[in-house]
């Protein structure tokens, strides 16, 4: 796959590593704006084509190569630049446009611009803190490519356990694994005691409904 990765900072480094792992034989092109980073990236990713380019010339590069590019990943340290590059990629029908956010508050702006995939690296802070501190509900994973969502729910009372069981019985496409207070993992709701957690997985709207149900039970 021919991927254009723009940027030479931390986000770009991890993106390049991930691309290399997924598609080791793929054609990876990295564009950077400083010569020092271009040299460093060439050494770190010897099989990639690392280009030095002026900030304002990148859009032309995307336009000229849009027929061959499979994906454009904007991972510079500026969200406004990322937005510019993704917008050009989208307008020129590059099939996959990805932006890695620097400021999660800009998420809605990217969404409004209909960028394919918006990666918020800071989202993991909330998820992990919720997990560590035992939040009543936590959306652990929400797929960017399909409708799948995984969430954890702490079973704080019998009513919640009962509601969860009946919801799981009702929906064939929602599955769950239960973790007891002592850490045992089971797929059977009957083996779960209060204080444990349920990790539920299924279509986003159904998971959201279950989470709302859990929130309501906890609030009561």
């Amino acid at each position: 796959m021919r991927v254009l990765l723009i940027g030479g900072g931390h986000s770009a480094y991890f993106a390049a590593r991930a691309i290399r792992e997924i598609d080791p034989d793929g054609h990876l092109i990295i564009i950077e704006f400083t010569r020092e980073k271009v040299e460093m990236l060439s050494r770190t990713f010897p099989s990639a084509e690392v280009l030095f380019q002026e900030i304002d010339r990148v859009e032309d590069y995307i336009k000229e190569n849009s027929e061959l590019l499979d994906a454009v990943i904007a991972a510079t340290e500026s969200d406004s630049l990322n937005l510019r590059y993704c917008r050009v990629a989208r307008e020129n029908a590059v099939p996959i446009t990805v932006s890695i956010l620097n400021n999660p508050l800009n998420y809605e702006i990217f969404k409004k611009e209909k960028i394919n995939y918006i990666i918020d690296p800071y989202r993991v802070i909330t998820i992990q803190l919720f997990e560590i501190l035992g939040a009543p509900v936590n959306v652990v994973f929400s797929s960017l490519v399909n409708n799948l969502e995984i969430a954890s729910v702490r079973i704080l009372n019998e009513k919640l356990l009962h509601e969860l069981r009946s919801a799981l019985d009702k929906h064939d496409d929602v599955i769950a694994a239960f973790v007891s207070r002592t850490g045992e993992i089971s797929s059977s709701p009957s083996s779960v005691s209060l204080g444990g957690s349920a990790y539920i997985m299924g279509p986003r709207e159904k998971i959201e409904k279950l989470l709302q149900l859990s929130r309501n039970v906890v609030m009561r």
């Binding site: 796959m1 849009s66 027929e67 061959l68 499979d70 994906a71 029908a93 996959i96």
Partner: peptide, 9 residues
Amino acid sequence: IVNLRKLRW
């Protein structure tokens, strides 16, 4: 193929 526009190329 991801980008079908590259078919001709």
